[in-house]
Amino acid sequence: MVTLDTSSRPVRRAASPTKRQARTAWGLTAPALTLMLLILLVPVAVAGLLSFTNYSLGNSGFDWVGIQNYERLFTRSTYAKMFIATFTYVVTVVPISVGLGLGAALVVNSMGRIGDIYKTIYFLPVMATLLAMAIAWEFMLHPSIGAVNRTLEMGCGTWLETLPFFAKGCADGFPLWLGDRDYAIWVICFIGIWQGFGFNMVLYLAGLTSVHRELYHAAEMDGAKTGWERFRLVTWPALGPTTVFVVTISCIRAFQVFDTIEAFWPQGGGPNKSAYVMMFAIFEKGIQQNLIGIGSAITMLFLVFVMFLTLIQRWLVERKVHYG
């Protein structure tokens, strides 16, 4: 009996465990795979297909319209405004929020325990519901009773009036902010930075903890005398991977700006469409106006941007900044 057992078992085991493990593995991944397919991949395909049609919800059929939707995106002035608004936002918010995040992280990091208070404060906007804070900002920026203009008015009659901005504001009233097409997109950018830089700061702070302290001592011994030289020689290269990540995630978040714009201008995307960003365009065209074709085309374009950015990030991480 004993000999039979030991001789027959290994044979059965050798064949089955790998197979059995494979079967279990597929079983364990099946729900995730199915959902991934249905929720992420199929919609991308659907959007891709619909972007070549004039489909509307409620209609029984649709026609293939070729690249007409994409053509419109690149010819109509509305969409030109959309691209301008989106890129203005991204190009403004990303560098400033990353720069401020890095600056704040460096200063906070150099202060020891007291710095934690600032860390907490700067992180608050990240946690807060953006929509609620957008409404709070809307009140702050109210042309007549908002805190911003009230504070600015206090500057009237002081030396500040020598500045052109104040001179004009005190004479003709300060800007309408959200109602002014020259200011609207910049206000949106400001709120984006206000909300996002604390997040970048925290990422940088995490990055800074991984910088080996002895490297600073080595730099000092090697003759790096100024803080800037040490930053260039040690801190900045060590933060390379963090920077790549922070820039990418800031870009992706910036591309997705929506809450503030919808809260301020439920219709139309700001004065003269000056804040008509892509997410809002998808919402307005695709959902509100039921122009699924054009909405899908914007969606596809949007995906291309985001994927392109992420691929650049991965390439950078793998090629340049990864030292192993």
Partner: peptide
């Protein structure tokens, strides 16, 4: 690479 917000429209249609 695919942010769910970005594919909101096809998801909504489905």
């Amino acid at each position: 690479l695919i942010p769910v917000h970005a594919i909101a429209l096809p998801l909504y249609i489905m």
